[in-house]
């Protein structure tokens, strides 16, 4: 059973982020990390490998050259090899473009499971996995707190409105997992050393049989403005008051805003 984990490199959570004058994310000087939610996908894949269910784990990322660092870091956690898709024509890629490129790469890699995070930290659209599934015409099993593989079938445990379900589909599938998978493992020193020798390939659009023309100039969407959020009025504080007085003040505050 072969798993490809799709990981995205993103600016560190909470880092100071800006847009450039041409309305793209300014990546200069910002620490880059593996999208935190993708670490759970890595962890899930490695658990399946530890259990002997998966016999190959490959990482796939689309991004600038620098994204090879994220792949190297994933390889230090475990897994076998990695592919970076990088091409100048992909600068400013949106979710559709990303899905199109990943789908083409996955066609080539032909895994039983393409495993992804539930969302990327910077965009939070959660649309890439489903779009990839639709483009490749394979089932989508999303938002799993666990992924199980057996008998030519994949299953995810997914929260329902009232409890949880196991959703099943025949392989191959695209699956996404949540942070309920369990805490991602750390890379050991041995893992970091071993990762240096693991194979990593770099593919361009041409290697995927795609051209910039197929990609609508990298995006179907265009950002026309980027600005700071509106300044909110400063926080009002209630401190050092006995509870009943504090409660009366809170109630006044709520009443003034017609909330009670």
């Amino acid at each position: 059973m072969k798993i490809v984990v799709c990981i995205k490199q993103v600016p560190a959570t909470g880092a100071d982020k800006r847009y450039t004058d041409d309305l793209r994310l300014d990546r200069t000087g910002v620490e880059a990390i593996i999208n935190p939610l993708d670490e759970y996908a890595i962890e899930q894949a490695l658990r399946l490998a530890d259990a002997g269910t998966a016999d190959a784990v490959t990482y796939l990322s689309m991004g600038p050259d620098q994204a090879s660092e994220a792949l190297r870091r994933a390889l230090a956690m475990g897994g076998d090899d990695a592919v970076l898709i990088t091409d100048p024509a992909l600068a400013g890629a949106d979710e559709w473009t990303t899905a199109k490129v990943l789908a083409a790469a996955l066609d080539k890699l032909a895994p039983d499971v393409a495993l992804m995070g539930m969302a990327s930290d910077d965009a939070r659209g959660s649309l890439v996995p489903g779009a990839v599934a639709a483009m490749r015409d394979v089932p989508l099993l999303s938002y799993g707190s666990e992924l199980a593989l057996a008998d030519g079938e994949a299953r995810v445990r997914r929260l329902s409105a009232t409890g949880y379900d196991w959703i099943a589909a025949p392989l191959p599938v695209v699956a996404t997992v949540t942070d309920q998978v369990g805490e991602p493992r750390y890379a050991s020193l041995k893992g970091i050393m071993a990762a240096k020798r693991k194979p990593m390939e770099t593919w361009s659009l041409g290697d995927l049989g795609l051209s910039a023309d197929d990609l609508h100039g990298a995006a179907l969407t265009k950002v026309t403005d980027a600005r700071a959020p509106e300044e909110k009025p400063p926080t009002e504080r209630i401190e050092n008051l006995p509870a009943p007085e504090a409660a009366a003040k809170i109630a006044d505050w709520l009443a003034a805003r017609k909330l009670i």
Binding site: D16, A219, L220, T221, K222, D225, A228, P229
Partner: peptide, 16 residues
């Protein structure tokens, strides 16, 4: 976007 640190406005690209 970016954890609420930036507000972006977006439209379909020309010809999308």
């Amino acid at each position: 976007t970016l954890q609420g640190s930036v507000i972006t406005t977006a439209r379909p690209a020309d010809g999308a």
